[in-house]
Amino acid sequence: MSDHEPSSSMRTPMGRVRHLGAAHAGTKHFWHQRLTSVALVPLTIGAVILVLSLMGRNHAAVVQILGSTAVAIGLLLFVLVSAYHMWLGMQVIIEDYVHDELPKIAMLMGNTFFSCAVALTAVFAILKLSFGL
């Protein structure tokens, strides 16, 4: 829900709702899904090849490569954009299939908790690999 303007606003009721659609939030959700999709194309190709090329190498080599600046930044971008994208995507899936209010809200909350936890944990691990604490 977007914040409603005070009734003293000079804008007409029609002007206030135009372009906002049924969810009163405009196209932000849809647009961010597309924005993250475009960003994810190169990031995913890079991340998949990187991770697979590290399979079978010993721990020291993996730490050295994952901790190097360019790789760490690329991977950070990948996990952060992925977490936001999957949060948006799972929200749509839940809204499509779960119609009873309480389970729906619980699952939407769970989706947010999970996505934030994924983002934070991945960032922590990547930074630790870089800074070697």
Binding site: V51, H59, V62, V63, A83, V118, T121, A125, I126, L129
Partner: peptide
């Protein structure tokens, strides 16, 4: 993503 996380955390842990 859980598999990716497991791999990243393990690499960071030692």
């Amino acid at each position: 993503t859980l598999l990716l996380l497991w791999w990243l955390i393990a690499a960071a842990a030692g």
